[in-house]
């Protein structure tokens, strides 16, 4: 498993832990509330850290995370935030319809390749991670590079 895949797997684990913390429980509501807050903060902090790290990889133009098409985390150099969000929403809707028609299962990733740039959208728990780069860049190879932690 290369660097980015292991990061995604870690994020998915944190998303699962948060989802488990949200399940109804007979415990004291104060303890449940505190646990949910901590698990949510762990997940969101990890998302922001990954977005920052991916944004620094050579060849990657920008990285951002969205929830319901609204910006949730971004690397330092993201422009056209709202356009990204609109693209995420529209693409996700079209992909979900297509996936349902073809029996593909839940959508994991969508890639749009233009003549100049390309954009990858990956589902992570309730969020969508967007990574953009020049068309010529091999995104998989760029994301394999392990970079130093922030």
């Amino acid at each position: 498993m290369h660097w980015f895949q292991s990061q995604l797997a870690a994020l998915n684990r944190l998303a699962d832990q948060y989802a488990r913390a949200q399940r109804p429980s007979a415990s004291n509501i104060v303890n449940v509330s505190e646990n949910m807050r901590l698990k949510r903060a762990e997940f969101i902090d990890a998302v922001q850290a990954l977005v920052n790290q991916v944004g620094k990889i050579k060849g990657i133009s920008s990285c951002a995370a969205y929830h319901d098409g609204l910006i949730l985390a971004r690397s330092a150099d993201v422009s056209a935030i709202d356009a990204f969000g609109a693209t995420v929403q529209e693409s996700a809707r079209a992909a979900q319809q297509g996936a349902a028609l073809l029996g593909l299962g839940d959508v994991e990733q969508i890639v749009i390749v233009g003549t100049k740039n390309k954009l990858a959208m990956l589902n992570v728990g309730p969020l969508v991670l967007c990574i953009s780069c020049r068309k010529e860049i091999n995104l998989a190879a760029a994301l394999q590079r392990n970079i130093a932690p922030p």
């Binding site: 509501i29 449940v32 969101i44 319901d68 098409g69 609204l70 910006i71 949730l72 985390a73 309730p126």
Partner: peptide, 23 residues
């Protein structure tokens, strides 16, 4: 502020706040 971040936190917080308030 990142609107999606604030909205996400708000949406996730409300069910717990409802329970806390009803108690």
């Amino acid at each position: 502020a990142l609107l999606g971040r604030v909205r996400f936190e708000l949406k996730e917080t409300i069910p717990v706040l409802k329970k806390l308030f009803s108690n």
